[in-house]
Nucleic acid binder design. Structure first.
Lengths: 242, 242
DNA sequence: ATAATTTTTGACTTCAAGTCAAAATAGTTC
DNA sequence: GAACTATTTTGACTTGAAGTCAAAAATTAT
């Protein structure tokens, strides 16, 4: 008798509906403007039903963010499995990251928010665990690429610590997106380009500094960027600008 | 008759008291836990008096953050006026930045917060202007150092765009602090060191990538870090660990 | 001393998160 | 298919904090 299973499936579907709708609203107006009364009306359930699924507003936001992190993991997996030199594979992670931030411009500020103590502490333990495992998966793909880079002699761990490089790249990405979401910082550019426009250039500055071969003086990473877009993310990029 | 002046001075002092107390409370428990009823009790004024000074809770937080930005500007000014090669001066900015984040560990998340649309839009125009000018001052000191680096032939603008480098360094700093404040990200380190511990190493990776002379293969920036601490920030660092 | 002005405040409104007992619905048993 | 049980849903409620305002208190001017 599959009644329990069917019910569970329905519950799952309902939850996904809630998460998807909350995602839309978050994309629209951000966390502080997210109103559960409004969301309840939108999904045509009562607010109390929402609280049947999520322990708090924060818990709901964590669920949305976990979904985003799943997608990031998918993109990084593709990058990791890509048949290319290690430096191209790590670059592909960056391109996937950038793609995600175009598809879901609010994903960066959400994951910041969710990892801050005041939000995190109000989330349920199961959802915290799930988010952590999704995030772990993202890091595991990075680490694998770093490991291969050393194994394949593209990177000398004596010259630059692989873990350091990982944190450098993550910092660059997070920082650039942060600046991009900031209302004041952008203004200090004298050119029209801003932190996010320079992100890939700065990746390569850092990787050149670490002497991760091939250096950007040896190959043209602008062309390689195009190649990676086509090889790994052609559908997604095509769908971006309709 | 200096009655108006005296009153203005008293008002100013009162405001500083409010800001200082709010700063303490923010350092303690963060933005979401900041309660204006509690703050009013603490400073022994009514909440309505607080609203006589600040148009909203957000406006108060912006005032706190502006004070922090003033200090950052002071540190960057010191770095800019330092009699040393350009690369040491830009490094000194990084050291000042890091110092500030030790003195005021909450300053980073506050300035993030304040520049997000939902907060920024609830602040008064005069305080927005003030914050922007404080931030502008910080950038102006950076730009001056970049300009000098090119003028003194330490940096070739053909190889790496000075504006790009600025954004790279700012991204690295913001990103590392962001990670440091995140409850989940830190866990993915296999060593005990984390993003912030690697920050200066990554600065130098980036600056080496940009070929900003002297390269870290030519001089020992660990020693230079000690020198800068003593030359520019000795008092502040001494006061840090009581 | 008194009138005018400014400052301060307690009591209020508003809004959204979160709770809960009762109603509605679905499933089970005879 | 009626009666009983379990689960799900909900409207109406409580709570807590931001923000408002008219009146009281304090200060200054005449």
């Amino acid at each position: 008798m599959g009644v329990t299973e069917r019910k569970e499936r329905e519950r799952q579907l309902r939850e996904e509906l809630f998460i998807a709708e909350a995602d839309l609203m978050l994309a629209e107006n951000g966390y502080l403007a997210l109103n559960l009364d409004e969301l309840a009306k939108q999904v045509e359930y009562s607010k109390a039903t929402l609280y049947n699924h999520f322990t708090s507003k924060e818990d709901l936001v964590l669920a949305v963010t976990t979904k985003h992190m799943q997608t990031r993991g998918d993109y990084f997996e593709r990058a990791n499995l890509y048949q290319a030199p290690s430096r191209e594979r790590i670059f592909a992670c960056g391109i996937g990251d950038r793609l995600l931030s175009r598809q879901l411009p609010h994903s960066f500020s959400l994951s910041q928010l969710v990892c801050s103590p005041s939000i995190w502490s109000k989330c349920s333990a199961p959802r915290q665990k799930l988010f952590e495992s999704r995030e772990e998966r993202v890091f595991a793909h990075c680490s694998k690429i770093l490991y291969d880079a050393v194994a394949q002699n593209d990177l000398d761990p004596q010259k630059a610590d692989p873990e350091q490089i990982t944190w450098g790249l993550v910092s660059l990405s997070k920082g650039s997106h942060l600046i991009n979401n900031s209302l004041t910082l952008e203004q200090h550019s004298t050119s029209e380009r801003s932190a996010l426009d320079y992100l890939f250039d700065n990746y390569h500055l850092l990787l050149d500094g670490a002497q991760w071969r091939p250096l950007s003086s040896e190959v043209d990473y602008r062309n390689i960027e195009q190649k990676i877009r086509e090889d790994l993310f052609s559908q997604e990029f095509a769908a971006l600008n309709p």
